[in-house]
Nucleic acid binder design. Sequence first.
DNA 1: CGTCTATTTGAATGTACTCAAAAGCGGTGG
DNA 2: CCACCGCTTTTGAGTACATTCAAATAGACG
Lengths: 196, 196
Amino acid sequence: MDHQSILSNVARHISLDEKEIDYFLSLLTVKTLKKKDYLLKAGQPCTTINYVYSGALRAFHQDDSDNEVTIMFAVADWWITDMACFVSQIPAMTSIEAIDDTCVLQLAKDDLDKLYIKVPKFERYFRILMQNSYVREQLRTLQNLSSPAEERYLKFLEKYPAMARQLTQKQIASYLGITPEFLSAVRKKISKGIIS
Amino acid sequence: MDHQSILSNVARHISLDEKEIDYFLSLLTVKTLKKKDYLLKAGQPCTTINYVYSGALRAFHQDDSDNEVTIMFAVADWWITDMACFVSQIPAMTSIEAIDDTCVLQLAKDDLDKLYIKVPKFERYFRILMQNSYVREQLRTLQNLSSPAEERYLKFLEKYPAMARQLTQKQIASYLGITPEFLSAVRKKISKGIIS
DNA sequence: CGTCTATTTGAATGTACTCAAAAGCGGTGG
DNA sequence: CCACCGCTTTTGAGTACATTCAAATAGACG
C-alpha cells in the first residue's frame, strides 16, 4: 500500500516528523471493497473514519418510506464516515456503499482519540477538514433552498465534473433531492435549450 | 462584562489555566447591537467570529432575485460568522442582523490564528465546534431533501423551541426555505388537525 | 391614533412527484 | 455471438406541494 496520497493530504495542512508519520500510518487499516459492497450499514456501529485511496463511495439515508437521500459522495483523497454516529458512537443512521471497486484507509475512533493526544497537530488537521465540510454543507443547504432543480443540477456538474461522470443519474438525483424521473425531464429541457 | 458564559462554554471542551484564560479573554472585543442593526453586511470583509452573549442574530443570504434565505440563527451561547468568508477572507456573501438587542464577543481572524499558535488546545475546541456544526448542517440537508415543509416546520419547533418563540413566522419560513404565505397555510392545516 | 410590517386568505400557476409502461443498456450464460 | 435478465432512463398522464400576486386583516410600535 502506497501511503503517499494520504500523507500529502495531511501535509497540506500540518507538518509531521518521521516518528509522527510512522505512528499515524500504524493506526491505519487497509480495506478493499468491490462495487456494491457496503462500508457501513445503517444500524451498525460506526467505528471508523475512512480515507478513500481509490474508487468511489456513496453515503445515503433511507427514510421511513424507503426513499433514499444521498448525503455525500467520496472519491479518491476524500474522507467519509457517518460523522454524527462516529463522534457519538451511536448506531449509524447512514449506509455507505462502494459505487466502484474501492480501497480505503480506516482510522478507528479509539485510535483517532489517541492520535489527538499523542500528536495534537491532528486536532488542527481535522479542525480544518471539519471547517471545510461545514462550509460545503452550508452552501449546499443554501442552494437547496434557493435554487430550482435545474440550476442545482447544472451547479453540481460544474462543481464535481469528474464525480458526475462516474455516477448514474439515479445517484445524482438522490443527491439533488429529486426523483430520477424528474432529473430525466430536467436534462431533456436543458438539451433542448442548448440546440439554440 | 461577565465572561463566565463564554468560559464555561470553552470549559465544556478544553481546560485552560489562568494565563491561557487571560490571554483568550484579552483577544475578545465586546460589541452591542440594537435590534435590526447589522453585525455584517454582504460584500464587506468578514473579519470576526462572534460569540453571542445575549440576544439573537440571523445570518441570511440574498439571492439574485432578492429572495432571502436564512442560513442560521444564533442565540445566547452560540458562535456565528460567515464561515466561508471568515476562513478565506473574501468578501461576505452573507449578512448578519440582530433580531433583538444583542451583545456579542468578537474574535478577530488574526487573533484566532495567534490563539491557535499560542494555545493549541483551541484547535481542539474549534475542531469540536466545527464538527458539531457540520453534523447539524448535514442533518438539515437531509431533512430539506426528504421531508415536506409541514414536517420540517414541526421538527424545527421541536428542536429549537426557545428560538422559535423569539422568531417571526417570516423568519422561520426563510429558514425552512418556504414562503411566509405557505407557512401560514401549513400552520392552519396543523391547527385544524389538532382539534381532532 | 396612525403607520408599518407581519400574517392570513384565495385564485391562478409552476415545480416536482407518483405511477405505469416502454425503451435502452450492460452483463451473463448458453 | 446472441438472447435474456435486471436495472437505468425516458415518456406521459394525473396529482400534490409550494409559489406568485393581490387584497384584507391583524399586530406592534412610536
